Amino acid sequence: MKAIRTLVLTITLAGSGALQADQIVAEVPDNTGGAVAGSLTGLLLGGAAGGPIGALVGAGAGFFAGGSVQQSAGLSGNGYLVQGDDGAQYQVRSPAAEFSVGQQVERDGIRVRAVEGAVLADGR
């Protein structure tokens, strides 16, 4: 009898991970590429114009300007706001995969991937 209880408990705990998957809450623009390109450009131009201090100031200004330029040009990448099973929210980039709001995902390093067999909040 103890073996059956242990088996039931093990199966229940193993299956509960799929029920506690993270969920896509919203789509957000990802402008990381523009920010990096702007930082590098600002670093080089600032360094040429003002030496080491100019390089730091240029990199900082380029970071903000590059992200803004990418967003205003309509070239933002895919980014998502994800809510974890503990209620905490975090933002992820997804240059290759697209997700829907309400889709169940699981964290795989710095990326997320869709949970197999999960049903969307709207029933799809």
Rank of each mutant, 00 (worst) to 15 (best):
Q71A: 02
T32V: 14
G79L: 11
V36C: 12
Q89T: 14
L13M: 10
A73I: 12
R111Y: 13
F64Q: 05
G67Q: 02
G117V: 08
N31Q: 07
A65W: 03
Q83T: 01
R93Q: 12
G60R: 11
L81C: 06
Q103A: 08
V105T: 09
V57H: 04
L19S: 04
R107S: 13
Q104H: 12
A96R: 12
G109S: 10
T12P: 00
T10D: 07
Y90M: 13
A49I: 13
Q71G: 07
Q23V: 15
Q20L: 14
G123E: 03
V57D: 01
A49L: 10
L43A: 05
A97R: 14
S100V: 08
L13K: 02
R113E: 03
S39F: 09
E106A: 10
P95D: 06
R5Y: 14
S76F: 04
G60D: 10
A118Q: 12
E116N: 07
A61L: 05
G46P: 07
S68Y: 10
S94T: 11
R107A: 14
S94W: 08
T6E: 00
T41A: 09
L40C: 04
V36Y: 12
A37G: 11
R93W: 04
I24W: 15
F99S: 02
L9T: 14
V119S: 08
E106G: 07
L9S: 08
E27N: 09
L45M: 06
I53C: 03
R5H: 15
F99N: 00
V112C: 14
D108T: 14
L7S: 00
A55W: 00
